[in-house]
Design a protein around this nucleic acid. Sequence first.
DNA 1: TGTACATCAGTGAACGCGCGTTCACTGATGTAC
DNA 2: TGTACATCAGTGAACGCGCGTTCACTGATGTAC
Lengths: 196, 196
Amino acid sequence: MRYAPDHKQATRERILEAAGRLFRREGFGGSGITAIMKEAGLTHGGFYAHFDDKEELLAAAIAWALSEENSHRSVGLEHLGGLEYVIAVCDRYLSLEHLEAIENGCPAPALMSELSRMGHKPREVFEEACRGWRDEIESHLDPDQHAVALGLVAACMGGLTLARSINDTQLREQVLASTRTLIRQSLADSNDRSAS
Amino acid sequence: MRYAPDHKQATRERILEAAGRLFRREGFGGSGITAIMKEAGLTHGGFYAHFDDKEELLAAAIAWALSEENSHRSVGLEHLGGLEYVIAVCDRYLSLEHLEAIENGCPAPALMSELSRMGHKPREVFEEACRGWRDEIESHLDPDQHAVALGLVAACMGGLTLARSINDTQLREQVLASTRTLIRQSLADSNDRSAS
DNA sequence: TGTACATCAGTGAACGCGCGTTCACTGATGTAC
DNA sequence: TGTACATCAGTGAACGCGCGTTCACTGATGTAC
């Protein structure tokens, strides 16, 4: 081995991070390979030493960004128990801060629509991340509340994506607030039922 | 006037319908003007006799598709009252039939992600349609339930988009079912409260 | 320690292609007389 | 009713451009002796 063993790996990760940022900002179709490599401080030609084609990069970048998102999602919330934890995670997801953090936030809202037209691999990566999120939520809920876990994921993603798709900043906040309320009411209901 | 007065208008609507179908199937970026005009049975050059540019078409096509969606959404459900009506509309939105009806279904799931990167006009059109949907839902709910109307819109769109973004057909159905459950629980809760 | 060499991550010119847009034109339509 | 004409919706060649991808190359790295 002529170069330091992890030199190439480090470059690959730099490309992955750059692609993650660009995909969230401009979408998959809107991010050219030249722009991605430039964002990573490289020229476009070197791209194919790291990935077979653009779709392979997409799959890898989604996996990377989703695992980052997964590890950031609940930081500082670990002390909360059960239902409170779940509500806090959803509230944070549906916050104004997250609304504005397009480049560093969850990649799902920016990519979901395009993902449904994408090949098998990127969708598989996304699917696996969704299962992970569902399982994590379920692990904090009573068994009789497990049925809404995927719905919570859907509502969070839908609320953030919808809020980002409209102009009026007041209506944006109302979308976020209303989705938070919906989630709270839904969980409060199952809570009441299991308590009674 | 040399041609029948509404000849051009009819062609414009044919382009709008073709664009609506293509945008939902391939996205905004994935639908070329040549392909749209071909889908409408025309050649690409004539496009600019009807629209200034592609973004103007997008705004018009979204408006067209959303108003169609609005008039289809609740067909056959008019006899249901209040809460039952709202739940039925959401159930239909989150059905397997709608999941598969990409070209004829609601345009929001296919376009939301791209919309958040779009110019002012298309977002404004979309925003107005969302207000309309919210108002329609609110008109069927008790005033103390109005706070969740936008959340219902978000959850419906999120559930359908998420379901379409994954491969596993079983998990897809679970996403739809779980989102329907979330909505039901949320509305049941406020219903109990206003009843007690 | 010093030199000659092999490796290979990254460079940048070039490719074919489809994009959005322009424009000179064609030919069916409906009017005027 | 018949003919000459003006209109303008729609055609299709052409434009400049950026895309994804290929490939011959360069030059810094670390090895072998």
